[in-house]
Nucleic acid binder design. Structure first.
Lengths: 193, 193
DNA sequence: GGTGCCATGTAACGCGTTACATGATTAT
DNA sequence: ATAATCATGTAACGCGTTACATGGCACC
């Protein structure tokens, strides 16, 4: 859902063609190592935007070189963009892959939960190291936005590591009282009868 | 990538049929409000698992009632599962939708960055409130895993809020020195020539 | 004459979604 | 009777991916 609107936002600046859009996107997110958008996605997304009337093809030029299909944003597109800007993004905290991995390692008996935690912590430290390095290499004069992004990543990685500690501690406490197989339909708000 | 392995993990416990798998999944993640897996996904995923040889159909019973297609995990499936358990999950810190929204609101001039931040903060507070409520309603005796999940969510929401403060402060500091349009190909490690 | 960049796409697949469709058993 | 729950799927679409394919231009 983000790439769609990002392209729209870039077209709001000025009309562009596919290749140019991809380059602009990359520049704005701070390089392909942060967010690599494949050409295929750019062109198919442009097609869908066009079908939806949010974008229209302005002209197809071929000044000697290869042909360029230039797209521009429509009023409907500007409206959709404004709507996107005015709503907060929904965080996907649920659907946590590590959590289900951990719970299943306990429930299925196919893996040792402590080893699962160890693997995760190891990966987190590795990522933290890589990101910290990248931040130290960035130039605060020109890469301010990029640095902000890295700081967000670091804060989340640290939160993950702190949380892993909590999980491990709780796991130790649970040792003898394994886990009461949770009965379905028992969670959240009381049954909506 | 998670549902696939989750189903595999549940089949490692014992053979089951589709409907049962869905119920077990829901029980394990703590209710549909956390992670709602649609029937369509369960059945199509089972098909793909079967095609990949990670799962096989054990029997199709119809004891009076509707037919049940019972699946069991194969040795190859157990292997894939063990591999999944032994590797940490890759965090998707890059591909941050809010970040690109913020940057584009500045670059495109179509929205006020402060309003974008406000909308996001508002949403975060709303979610934080909802999650905190859910945690306070949960029973630590039976819903331990569930509470752990909520605590992770809370920690990340708080990190997001703290980060928003930083962003806003930096934005204030940037006021007069708008932003140097980042030139492409300038980021990360030095050009790998 | 290559290598690399500019520029465009198509095909097929994986994961997830909504909507649609069917039918049997069980409880009120 | 009818509503809920059990149980199974198909079709079509959105987003993202990899792989494949084409062709011009510029530079060494």
């Amino acid at each position: 859902m983000s790439v769609r609107h990002a392209l729209l936002g870039l077209l709001a600046q000025r009309p562009r063609h596919g290749y140019e859009l991809r380059a602009a996107f990359e520049a704005v997110v701070g390089g392909e190592e942060n967010w690599d958008v494949k050409p295929a996605q750019v062109y198919t997304t442009l097609l869908r935007l066009q079908e939806g009337g949010l974008v229209r093809e302005e002209a197809a030029m071929q000044d000697g070189g290869p042909e360029k299909h230039i797209y521009e944003i429509t009023p409907a597109g500007r409206e959709a963009l404004a709507e996107w800007f005015s709503t907060g993004v929904e965080s996907e905290h649920h659907r946590d892959e590590f959590f289900i991995k951990l719970v299943l390692s306990m429930a299925s008996g196919e893996a040792d939960p402590y080893q699962v935690i160890w693997a995760q912590r190891s990966r987190l430290y590795q990522e933290l190291h890589a990101v910290t390095l990248r931040r130290s290499e960035a130039d605060p004069e020109t890469d301010l936005a990029y640095i902000l992004l890295l700081e967000k990543v670091i804060m989340h990685l640290e939160a993950d590591l702190r949380w892993l500690e909590i999980v491990e501690a709780r796991l130790d406490g649970m040792k003898r009282q394994p886990l009461p197989e949770p009965s379905p339909k028992r969670r959240g708000r009381p049954p909506k009868k």
